[in-house]
Simulated scan of single mutants.
Amino acid sequence: MTVVLTTSPGFGKHGRVPDLIAEKGWELIRCVDRDIPDGGVSEHIARADVLVVGLIPVTAGSLEGAETLKGVIKHGVGVDNIDMDACTAAGLPVMNTPGANANAVAELAMGFMFALARHMPASHASVVAGGWDRKVGTELSGKTLGIVGLGNIGRKLALAARGIGMKVVATDPYADKDFAAANGIEILELDDTLKVSDYVSLHIFGGAENAGLINAEKLSLMKPTACLLNLARGEVVDLDAVAAALDAGTLGGVGIDAYETEPPDTDHPVFRHPRAVFMPHSGADTKESVENMGLMVIEDIQTLLDGGVPARCLNGAALTGVDA
């Protein structure tokens, strides 16, 4: 029997995915115990044919004893929590599901902007407490959205924002210039994007390369009324600097869906700020998105079981140089 090990809470639960797994006769083992560093992977890795990854990191240690493992697949896009070198050294192809969750994350970014523009969290709290604190908000139409990372998610967000009358600028060294030109999107350097934007939405990979990218210095470039949205990875933003900027009135608001430690330590001062909106890293958590990701994962699992290398393999070139 094929054994599929997963550290994703959502894989195999939505849409057509559970029925397809059952039809194929695969055994699905879910390892999501956050009290254990690897979620429980080490207990089952010796039997696993495929490892489907959520937010729990895959390290060289995770792969010890993986005698039957044929590949590692991210149930999502960002593979910064997967040790690519360790996987390559073990001869394991690594895949992800690009584009599957783009619409879901883009819609949540729009939701953050609406919530901040119209004071939704504070207004909700007022009404349910018996108050009637009517706050004057702002419209998104006519405002400038700065997108950091114009990939699948960034492009979806740009189109949605343009659709309600926002101006869009973006920073991305690999931006699709044809897409940008066709949709009136100006490509700028990061500092210039921060300076001109009313909302800045982050859609980049995490890891050492982007750790602390948005720090006190970068925040000081933003308009004091501007809002920052982090739907990328927690380490991309210096939360201490964000809290300080909110308290000083030099940042208008923040919407956060990703944290360095998950769940986060809510004793941090940022969690007490009235102009902050939080989600539990659920940007990709729509039924449609999770089903799309699951179907892509199933397709790649079947390719691996058939002896092939999936087209979405991220380390294919490196694997060709691995000694047999």
Results as ranks from 00 to 15, higher is better:
Cys227Arg: 00
Gly249Cys: 05
Arg275Lys: 10
Gly15Met: 05
Val127Thr: 14
Thr138Val: 13
Gly283Leu: 03
Glu288Asp: 15
Leu188Ala: 05
Leu145Ala: 08
Leu304Thr: 14
Cys87Ala: 06
Ser8Arg: 09
Ser123Met: 15
Ala243Glu: 09
Asn183Ser: 02
Gly71Leu: 04
Gly252Gln: 00
Ala90Val: 11
Leu219Val: 06
His268Ser: 02
Ala46Val: 06
His281Gln: 12
Gly54Met: 02
Asn183Ala: 05
Leu213Lys: 08
Lys24Leu: 14
Pro121Asp: 03
Arg272Gln: 13
Val237Ser: 00
Leu69Val: 07
Ala106Arg: 00
Val3Arg: 09
Ala100Gln: 08
Phe11Trp: 07
Arg312Cys: 09
Gln302Leu: 12
Gly111Asn: 10
Val53Ser: 02
Trp132Leu: 13
Tyr199Lys: 02
Ile147His: 06
Lys223Ile: 13
Lys143Ser: 08
Pro269Gln: 08
Ala175Arg: 10
Tyr199Phe: 11
Ala241Met: 08
Glu209Cys: 03
Val94Ser: 11
Ile164Thr: 07
Gly212Phe: 04
Thr144Arg: 03
Gly146Met: 02
Val58Gly: 05
Ile301Arg: 08
Ala100Cys: 10
Leu239Gly: 03
Ala258Tyr: 09
Arg134Asp: 15
Gly234Trp: 06
Glu107Phe: 01
Ala60His: 12
Val41Ala: 04
Ala180Asn: 04
Glu291Asp: 15
Val77Trp: 07
Pro263Tyr: 10
Arg312Tyr: 07
Val4Glu: 09
Thr286Ile: 06
Arg275Asp: 11
Leu202Phe: 06
Asn183Gln: 14
Glu186Trp: 00
Ile204His: 08
Gly91Ala: 11
Val32Phe: 12
Glu186Phe: 01
Gly142Ser: 12
Ala106Met: 04
Cys313Pro: 04
Ile45Ser: 09
Ala311Tyr: 10
Val290Ala: 15
Ala161Lys: 01
Asp33Phe: 04
Pro310Ser: 15
Glu27His: 15
His14Cys: 10
Asp238Trp: 13
Gly151Tyr: 13
Asp323Cys: 11
Ile204Lys: 07
Leu190Cys: 06
Ile256Asn: 03
Ser201Trp: 07
Pro280Arg: 11
Lys13Met: 15
Ile147Trp: 09
Leu228Thr: 00
His119Leu: 03
Val32Leu: 11
Gly308Glu: 15
Asp172Gln: 03
Ala66Asn: 05
Asp238Arg: 07
Leu305Met: 15
Val242Cys: 01
Asp133Gln: 14
Pro98Leu: 14
Ser141Lys: 11
His75Leu: 02
Arg16Lys: 14
Gly321Tyr: 05
Ser62Ala: 13
Gly151Arg: 07
Leu140Val: 01
Ala244Trp: 09
Met113Glu: 00
Phe205Lys: 13
Gly252Trp: 00
Val127Ser: 03
Glu209Trp: 06
Lys70Ala: 12
Pro37Asn: 09
